[in-house]
Computed example of a mutant assay.
Amino acid sequence: MRLPLISLAAFAVLTLPAAAQDYLATGMGQQVFFSPSGQPFRAAPGKPYPTMDWFNAADANHDGKISHDEFVADAMRFFDTLDLNHDGYINSPENTRYENQVAPEIQRMDPRIQQPKVIQHDYDPDMDANQDQEPNGGKYIKQIVGASQYGLIDEPQPIRAADANFDFRVSKDEWLAASNQRFTILDRNRDGFITANELPQTPAQVAQELDQKDGKDRKNKKKHSGFW
Rank of each mutant, 00 (worst) to 15 (best):
P111D: 09
Q39R: 15
G46W: 02
F79Y: 01
V13I: 10
A9G: 15
Q30T: 13
Y98S: 05
M28Y: 06
P40Y: 03
T51P: 06
T96A: 12
L14Y: 13
F11N: 12
M28F: 09
I106H: 08
V102C: 02
A57G: 11
Q39W: 00
T81M: 08
Q107N: 15
P36K: 08
F41G: 05
Y98C: 00
I6W: 04
F71A: 00
L14C: 06
K117V: 08
S35A: 15
A12W: 03
A20C: 09
L16E: 10
D74T: 01
P111H: 04
I106S: 04
L84D: 11
I90Y: 14
F41P: 06
D83F: 09
F33V: 03
E105L: 02
A103S: 13
F11Q: 12
A58C: 04
A44C: 10
F55V: 05
H68F: 13
T51C: 03
D69Y: 07
L82K: 02
P50C: 11
V72Y: 03
N56C: 04
F34A: 05
L14D: 03
P4D: 00
A43Y: 05
Y98K: 05
N85S: 06
F34R: 05
R112L: 11
R97M: 12
G88T: 06
I6Y: 07
Q30Y: 05
D69T: 12
L84W: 05
D122A: 15
R97F: 08
A57V: 06
H86I: 06
P17M: 11
F33H: 04
V102E: 06
A57M: 11
L5T: 15
R112M: 10
W54S: 07
I66S: 02
A18G: 12
A12D: 11
R112T: 08
A10I: 11
D80N: 13
L3D: 05
A75G: 12
H68K: 15
L5P: 01
A103V: 02
W54V: 01
T26W: 01
F41Q: 10
G88D: 02
P45D: 08
Y23E: 09
N100S: 12
M109H: 12
T26V: 10
I6P: 14
E99Y: 02
I113D: 04
H68Y: 11
P93T: 10
A58K: 06
D122M: 14
M76V: 10
N91R: 13
S7E: 07
D87C: 09
F41A: 03
L3G: 09
D22Y: 14
N56R: 15
R108S: 09
I6H: 14
E94H: 05
L14N: 10
E99A: 11
L24G: 10
F33N: 04
A73W: 13
G46L: 01
I106M: 08
L16P: 10
G38E: 07
P48W: 05
D53N: 11
A19P: 07
Q115G: 13
Y49L: 00
P50H: 10
L82D: 01
T26A: 03
Y89H: 13
T51H: 09
F71Q: 01
H62K: 15
P48L: 03
F41I: 02
V72D: 00
A25K: 14
S7R: 15
R77G: 09
G29A: 03
G88Y: 06
G38I: 04
V32C: 01
P40Q: 08
L24P: 00
V72N: 01
H86L: 04
P93A: 05
